[in-house]
Amino acid sequence: MAEAIQLRSVTKAYQRAGESLRVLDELELTMAGGTFYALMGPSGSGKTTLLNLVGGLDHADSGTVMVGSVDLTQLDGSELAAWRAGNVGFVFQGFNLLPVLTARENVELPLQLTPLSRRQRRAQAERALQLVGLGDRMDHKPSELSGGQEQRVAIARAIATDPQVILADEPTGDLDRSTAAAVLQLLQRLNRELGKTILMVTHDPQAADYADKVIHLDKGKLGRIDANPGRG
């Protein structure tokens, strides 16, 4: 069973031009494990900040962020790094593959933080790439791949360590419509077939349609959560 995510009274503020800007304001939110969530809201509503907190990339100013049984607010920098390595996968808008590495090596990168042998790492990276349909592009560098292929490599990298939670920040923002649909279908498959909890930030209502539920944020607070009618 994938891990649930709970945020209790979470507040996060940034200093901008000498002023404190509260991005998340006493946010209360519970997300069930094994569910595909889309996170929507206007710019500045706190979507990416929420994603960063859930992904252990940032600390809340107050409140608790629980992923499964782990309270991320209690972990220090190196503990968070170790937690991220085994529990969460990231998919970014700009793909963020390392340009000097091949697709296989990019996917293998997070596996270097596991106790797997070199051969096991290679096998697991190849499995992940085959899962996203890039079994024939393993030795290509990012510059030799299309945008959609790059994003699929990024997804393979995100699932390589078999994390229960996948966080995607505008994963289709840089893709055309048909390529975006293929990437969203892939995320949907990971949720349905592998039971991954997916939290995807998007501005695109059509992308949000692929999710089970759509969370609306507004000015750092939870607006509402819509169950997607197209999904069971």
């Binding site: 790094a81 390595a85 990231f90 390392l98 340009p99 997070p110």
Partner: peptide, 15 residues
């Protein structure tokens, strides 16, 4: 810089 950010997000430590 971007690569370093990605590595940290993947779980590589500051050290």
């Amino acid at each position: 810089t971007r690569d370093l950010g990605v590595m940290k997000a993947l779980g590589f430590t500051d050290r």
